[in-house]
Design a protein around this nucleic acid. Structure first.
Length: 364
RNA sequence: GUCCCCAUCGUCUAGUGGCCUAGGACGUCGGCCUCUCACGCCGAUAACAGGGGUUCAAAUCCCCUUGGGGACGCCA
């Protein structure tokens, strides 16, 4: 019947064969029958949507929808109405995919003689292909974003800003959101989920956080990322020190965990990038490194400021530019060509580890 | 197919008839900063879907077209 209707270009719906038979509600012992709502056939069902404005649909469009299934259980459209009414719900704010349901539910409210609540429908979130966001587009359950290293506050902020705005403001604390949110400035067209902007927002939150606020999250992330990497030991350095160095460099906690690896392995387990070693640990550079290493060994206090002072004294004494020695040092203590600042890195690693790494690099 | 909804830079959006030569943000591209990578800063790029009206005046109001989304279950 539905197929036929669709083929003929009509809306597939109940043909109403029992509509006016005056059948009473079936007894419980009478399975196989369904109870429908006798819906008005003329006029329009109209309501004012909190975000979309007036919406009207011809009553003729509505089917005599099923309220009770043949097995005796209630259907969704009856259940929500009853539930919302019992709970005293006054405002219903839900996804756009429910707009078509609303007129149906209104007929149920009316049939039951109940007050109809306010309805508002927010636009759906679309994937990059502009289709309703679904599993196919990317892992999207809220929990999965946590696994990917996104901060809850960033996620909330991003989602809030998707389809809603408050002037030009982009970053909102949760309190601000609560204070500023109204349905007036909700957009009415669907929006595309943009991972790049989420990344940016997340980076903002990471940068603004106090290192202490990120330690637990990062710690979990490290455990998750390096569970099969026995070389990684979380207690080798103070995590908050690492966080401080990585905050401006990480878009996500996952990102940060990966960048943190160079701080979490011993000199023996540090991986040296072959190309970097070849390019920067030249014979001349090694000579300078060896000399610098001895000065480091004799430094009184191994903090960033002292290290910086020592470093600059060193290049001055050698009559070289900082650039000439920076990359060789970096490669020797991190194994790679990109890292946080040299002296802060050394300070976090500590004297023993720093020297051990330089020794290892010089032996390569 | 039928019904409902929607339509400003690639993306998120500001804009509620004159303040719009259309603003911000992400991205992209340049530059600055600089021990690398980032961060930061400066600059550039790029949009009112099309066509008709209404009006002294339209991104803003109305209509049509086109395009997009959603819904058409004894699922929720």
């Amino acid at each position: 019947m539905r197929e036929k209707a669709r083929a003929e270009g009509r809306k597939p719906k109940y043909d109403g064969s029992c509509r006016d038979k005056g059948l009473g509600p079936p007894n419980d012992g009478e399975p196989g029958h369904v109870v429908r709502l006798k819906t008005p056939t003329d006029g329009t069902i109209a309501y004012k949507d909190m975000v979309k404005g007036p919406i009207a649909v011809d009553a003729a469009e509505l089917d005599d929808m099923i309220l009770r299934r043949a097995d005796g259980t209630p259907t969704y459209n009856l259940a929500v109405v009853a539930d919302d009414h019992d709970m005293g719900v006054t405002h219903v704010l839900r996804g756009d995919d429910h707009v078509n349901n609303t007129p149906r539910q209104i007929t149920v409210y009316r049939a039951l003689g109940w007050d109809v609540p306010e309805f508002g429908h927010v636009p759906l979130i679309l994937g990059p292909d502009k289709k309703k966001l679904s599993k196919r587009h990317g892992a999207l359950s809220a929990m999965e974003y946590k696994t990917l290293g996104y901060l809850p506050e960033a996620m909330v902020n991003y989602l809030a800003r998707l389809g809603w705005s408050h002037g030009d403001q982009e970053v909102f604390s949760r309190d601000e959101l609560i204070r500023l949110f109204t349905t007036d400035n909700l957009g009415s067209s669907p929006s595309v989920f943009d991972t790049q902007k989420l990344d940016w927002l997340n980076a903002q939150y990471i940068q603004q956080a106090e290192p202490g606020q990120l330690t637990d999250g990062l710690s979990e992330m490290i455990a998750q990322e390096f569970k099969d990497d026995p070389a990684v030991k979380q207690d080798s350095v103070k995590l908050s020190d690492v966080i401080r160095l990585l905050q401006p460099r990480a878009k996500t906690l996952k990102d940060m965990a990966q960048q943190a690896r160079i701080f979490l392995v011993g000199s023996k387990d540090l991986e040296y990038d072959e190309k970097a070693v070849e390019k920067f640990l030249t014979p001349e550079a090694r000579e300078l490194l060896a000399t610098f290493r001895e000065q480091l060994a004799g430094l009184d206090s191994f903090d960033e400021e002292s290290l910086d002072k020592l470093g600059h004294g060193f290049i001055e004494a050698q009559g070289i530019k900082f650039k000439a020695i920076a990359q060789p040092i970096r490669v020797s203590i991190t194994g790679v060509t990109a890292s946080p600042g040299l002296f802060e890195t050394m300070a976090v690693l500590g004297r023993d580890e720093t020297l051990a790494r330089m020794d290892r690099a010089l032996s390569l």
